[in-house]
Design a protein around this nucleic acid. Structure first.
Lengths: 169, 169
DNA sequence: AAGTTTGTTCAAAAAAGTTTGAACAAGCGG
DNA sequence: CCGCTTGTTCAAACTTTTTTGAACAAACTT
């Protein structure tokens, strides 16, 4: 296919750059790689949904990174797929989820909850190790400490729905 | 000085290993290096406070790592220094802070709040960039999106004290 | 004052994480 | 069927973070 009527500018303008940088910093806080911040940042400041190919060109990033980044963002519920209005266009376009509730919800579901659940299990397994300790005093101390872990996990789980409710506005 | 009467065992027993592994995983979630999890984990399961030197020996970790790890843990308020009961002993001993409130409070203060504050500033600076955009419609869109960032930061700041209150029991 | 203990610093080595790009898969259109 | 478009996968290259260990500092002991 030849050049389309509309040519996409290649470099990011200063506003876009700043927004991308903002989200690169942002996602780092939650332990995600820069590429994901770049992708989400550009989607966030773009009026129309963008396809993988657009992101590759405008961010000067490899197809592989964009593909993987989009997958992570989808899993987190941080982007939505939209299909082109033009039926001949087979590309999948993406737009950002911009509701804090949704973003935090995805993060909690994917990154926090699994850890709280597996943490509870691990604490239980550690507790059973401690139960065998020969010295009575030491055993009491150990079980006491380990119970604390369990309390932490419980507090965490109690807190999640509250956080989500507050962010629901 | 010659060998003391009490010889510290060198390797971790299975319980200690599990506890250390538990916290290595735990601190990873909040973006801290494994060494810090190891240190906190061993302190957490130890009945008596431990000195830098004890941690080096028992964790088979370099003095440098333990020194830096303890500094971070102090900054986070996750460990407390205690001075030896024996006045001749010049070492500083450490015990873990085990109150969830305190741990989360330190994390929020050191890792979350700074980002929320600088994020608010950056959003403001991006907003002023957008205010110059020539196209009226596009400008409106941009300012709208950017305002959302500000709302996110605000929601975050509102949430922190609530989290802390809930964890206070 | 010289040696010992306790702890910090920081450059370099090692480990872990991220990105790239070439190869591959799947579907469409002629 | 063949070529083109769209997207995924994954080993290797690259980047960043973490850890190490040797050098240094401070403070005590003899």
């Amino acid at each position: 296919m030849h050049d389309s009527a509309e040519e996409m500018p290649t470099a990011l303008d200063p506003l876009e750059q700043q927004m991308v940088a903002f989200f690169v910093d942002g996602v780092r806080v939650i332990g995600l790689p820069p590429s994901i911040g770049q992708i989400y940042g550009l989607l966030f400041i773009s009026r129309q949904p963008l396809a993988l190919d657009d992101l590759v060109k405008r961010l000067e990033m490899s197809k592989g990174s964009v593909s993987q980044g989009l997958r992570t963002l989808k899993t987190l519920g941080a982007v939505r797929e939209v299909t082109a209005t033009d039926a001949a266009d087979r590309k999948t376009y993406y737009e950002p989820a911009v509701e804090l509730k949704r973003l935090v919800g995805g993060f909690i579901r994917e990154q926090i909850l699994p850890h709280l659940l597996s943490g509870t299990e691990k604490a239980e397994s550690i507790r059973s190790l401690a139960a065998n300790h020969p010295d009575q005093e030491q055993r009491t101390f150990l079980i006491n400490r380990i119970s604390r872990l369990d309390k932490w996990m419980r507090s965490g789980r109690r807190m999640l729905p509250i956080i989500q409710r507050i962010l629901g506005e």
